[in-house]
């Protein structure tokens, strides 16, 4: 049961905000602003370097929460929330881990809907939290029954 997983966290995984990934991501959301991709513009900016778009953390790897078994199909993305201390810098290493924040069920038009809230923390090499990313996933009754949880 998802409720038993509340408070569980994944291991902390290191990943790099890679220049090529940032460019490809910026292009994919139609936002090829030079602050993301032009090194000279980055150097002259107040950040002294290039930054990454705010939804870029989707690309970064984070650890797996042990025991969390999600269906491969049929999940609905309900909410997504970011909080930043400052923008992510191109080239920096980020250490991230996820925590299961909450799970609750609500009666909806298509049966009992499950809401699973997960929060990801992204820290720099000094252990300062640079961003948090909270996702709420909706798991419908049909999907839950199909996987027998």
């Amino acid at each position: 049961m998802y409720k038993d997983l509340i408070g569980k966290r994944s291991e902390r995984v290191k990943s790099t905000v890679e220049r090529g990934m940032v460019r490809r991501f910026a292009e994919a959301v139609g936002d090829l602003n030079p602050i993301y991709i032009d090194e000279e513009v980055g150097r002259r900016s107040r950040y002294g370097r290039n930054i990454a778009p705010p939804t870029f953390p989707r690309v970064l790897s984070s650890g797996v929460v042990e025991g969390l078994n999600l269906p491969k199909k049929g999940l609905i993305h309900g909410e997504q929330n970011y909080h930043y201390k400052r923008p992510l810098f191109v080239g920096e290493d980020i250490y991230s881990y996820s925590v299961i924040e909450d799970y609750y069920e609500k009666q909806g038009s298509s049966g009992l809907m499950g809401f699973l809230s997960t929060k990801r923390y992204g820290e720099n090499d000094k252990g300062e939290v640079i961003f948090t990313e909270e996702s709420v996933i909706i798991i419908t009754e049909t999907v839950r029954k199909a996987m027998k949880v």
Binding site: S45, Y47, I51, E79, N81, Y82
Partner: peptide, 12 residues
């Protein structure tokens, strides 16, 4: 980006 940055971004 020279004037500020997205500190919170919440979407439903």
């Amino acid at each position: 980006y020279e004037e500020g940055f997205i500190q919170d971004y919440q979407i439903r």
